[in-house]
Simulated assay, not measured.
Amino acid sequence: MWFFGIIAMITFVTMLVFGVLSIFSLKTKDDKGKRNIIVASSSLGICIITFLVSMALYGNHLENEEAVSKMNEEQTAVSNKLDKEIEDKQTEYTQKELEVNELNTKIEENQKEFEAALAIVEDKEATEKELEKLDGQIKEKKSEVDKINDDIKKKKDELAAITGQIKEKKDAPVTLSAGNFTVGKDIPEGRYKAVPNGGAGNFFVNDGADVNIMIGKGEFYESEYVFDAYEGDEIEITTSVKFIPVE
């Protein structure tokens, strides 16, 4: 820019100098003076053309400089906009990263809780299996105890029948006709001596599991039979039987 200013200044000074020389040459009337006028005019024309060209170049330079300045401003605005967008995206990325970290932390905590709950469930299942096993053993032992009690009751009845050491109680005997009866409902619980009441037939207790005889008179019949009647026992007789309480 300063270069074009200097050219314009030199052109203006040159024009001024040649203008002054032309004025002085006009005062001379000889051929030499005329030649000087022609030279001065030519020089003045060249100076004017040079000046105009310089001014045109200067104007073009100003336009170019304004365009460059405008372009630089636009580039700066675009660059600032892009920088702002990049900064916003960076902030958004940082926020999302924090959220992801929080979610990972929650997942780890929930995983620990799940593993603890799973361990409790597995321990519970193992305990339930152990309880089922123990319950089965208890039932098995109870069955064995019941069987032993039944054996003891039978042996006592057999012993009492063999030794004849039966002492009748003062309680009134209970006479039942043929049919099915329940101890505790039709006849009290206790120890009895069963004798036929004028007939003969089968005598079962609990479907023959505890007592299974034929009671009556004759070679194949029992004339009397001592047994223990427990609450809930089922008695089945096909003839009338008298149940005498004994000790």
Rank of each mutant, 00 (worst) to 15 (best):
T175G: 09
E236K: 10
E140F: 05
T163K: 02
V68W: 09
E66C: 11
L52G: 12
E92A: 15
Y230F: 01
D207Y: 12
L131E: 10
E224W: 07
G198N: 10
K27S: 09
E132K: 15
E63Q: 14
K242V: 06
T105F: 08
V17K: 01
A77L: 15
A194F: 06
S240H: 08
D228G: 07
A67L: 13
F51D: 03
V246Q: 02
C47Y: 01
V121Y: 01
M9V: 15
K133F: 13
V241Y: 01
F227E: 05
Q90G: 11
D135Q: 15
E73Y: 08
V195L: 01
G199D: 01
W2M: 15
V121C: 04
N60G: 04
R191M: 00
I7W: 10
L134R: 07
V241R: 01
K34T: 07
G59D: 03
K153V: 00
L103N: 04
G184V: 00
T238S: 10
P245A: 02
M15Q: 10
Y230L: 07
T14H: 09
K34V: 04
E219Y: 09
G184H: 03
K156P: 04
L176H: 03
E65N: 07
L131M: 11
K29A: 12
I6D: 04
K133G: 12
K147M: 12
E158C: 07
A67P: 04
F24M: 08
S54Y: 01
I120C: 02
A229G: 05
A200W: 04
K106P: 05
T94W: 05
F114Y: 09
G5D: 12
D186S: 13
K89L: 15
K153A: 01
D146A: 00
E99I: 09
L82G: 09
I215T: 00
E85N: 14
G190H: 05
I148A: 07
Y225R: 03
E115G: 06
L118V: 07
I37F: 04
F203T: 07
K156Y: 01
